[in-house]
Amino acid sequence: MSTVPAAPKKVNRAGLEILPYRGGKTTLCAGCGHNAITERLIEAFWELGVEPWSVVKLSGIGCSSKTPAYFLSQSHGFNAVHGRAPAVSTGTLLANHQLRCVTVSGDGDTASIGIGHFMHMLRRNVPLIYIIENNGVYGLTKGQFSATADLGAKLKTGTVNQLQPVDCCLAGIEMGATLVARSFSGDKRQLSAILKASIAHNGLSVIDVISPCVTFNDHAGSTKSYAYMKDHDEPLHELDFVPAFEEIDVEFDEGESRVVEMHDGSKLVLHKLERDYDPSNRIHALEVLHEATRRDEVLTGIIYLDRTRPSFTEALNLVDAPLATLAEEQVRPSREILEQINEEFR
C-alpha cells in the first residue's frame, strides 16, 4: 500500500474547495455562451471566498434561467416565472437583506415580458447582481427574435429585424442601476473582473453579457455571433480586480490606470486603452453607448459606476436582523397596544 499522502486540495479563504461552487451538469447546447458565464460565476464566487449559504440565485424562464441549477449547489435557488425574477428577487431581499443575490435572466425575460419589472428594479437600486445572458433570440421556443436583436440582424430563416433594439445598459444608467457593465461571454478576463466588482458592489449591478446562441443565432448576418463579437467588441478599458483580503499594495501609473475602491474595500483597476474613461460620469456613459451603437461597435467594460446612492434595502431602514428571523415579541404588538387601538374605535 502506498503511504504517499494525497496532495492537499486547493481551498479558498472560506476553507472550501471549488466543488460546492459548482452545480448540476448543464443541459444547454455545447458551445452555448451561457455555459461560459456559469464558469465565470463559479470562479468569481470561489475566488472571493463567498460562503455559498449566504447566496441566493434566482431566474425567470428561458435557456439563461436554467443556469442557476449549474452553479453554487449549496445556495438556495429559485427558477421563477418568465420575466419576473426581479420581483421575486426583491421580495427575497426584503425577507433577508443579508443575502447576496444573483439573478440570471435572458433578453426575452428582461427586454420583453419582464421589462416593466426590470425598469422598476433599476429605479429601486435593489442590491443584487442582475445578469442578462443576451443572445438576441428565444432559444427554448426555437429561434424567434428577441427585443435586443439589432436593427438589420438576420435570423437563420432570412428574416431581418426592422425594430429598434432595447439597450439594457442605456436603460440601466437612465433608470438608476449603480453598476452597469457590458461584456462578452468569450472574454474571460473582462467578465471575471466585472463579476467580482459586482460582488463587491453595494447596490444593483446590471451586466449585459453578449452570449452567442450556437444553435439559432451564430450564423452570418447575426449581430450576436462569436464571429461578430470578435470583429465588433470594443473594450473601454482592461480590468483588474484586487480583493480586499489580498494585502497587495496596488500601485499603478496614474496616467495609465484608474483605481476605484469598492464598497468592501477591494479595488477595481481600469487600465486605459485608447482613452481615459471615467465610469462615474453618467452623461458621458450615455454618450459613449450611443456613439458606439452609431459605429456598429459593441462597447464592453464597466460603463457606469455610482458608489454613493443607497440601495433599496438601505433606504427601507430595516432592522439589522433579517425580517424572516424576527421573533414573535418583535413583530406582534402587546395586549396593551391592542386595547389602545380598540379604544380609538369606541
Binding site: 426581479p86 420581483a87 421575486v88 426583491t90 421580495g91 427575497t92 426584503l94 425577507a95 425580517l323
Partner: peptide, 27 residues
C-alpha cells in the same frame, strides 16, 4: 429601525412576485 418592509410595486404581477419571494425566504 423597521421590523417590516412595505413596497408599493409596479403592478400586481410584481406585488405577488415580491410576496412570493419574501415568503420563500421566510418572511
Amino acid at each position: 429601525k423597521a421590523t417590516y418592509a412595505v413596497v408599493q410595486a409596479e403592478d400586481e404581477l410584481a406585488s405577488i412576485g415580491m410576496a412570493v419571494g419574501a415568503g420563500w425566504a421566510g418572511a
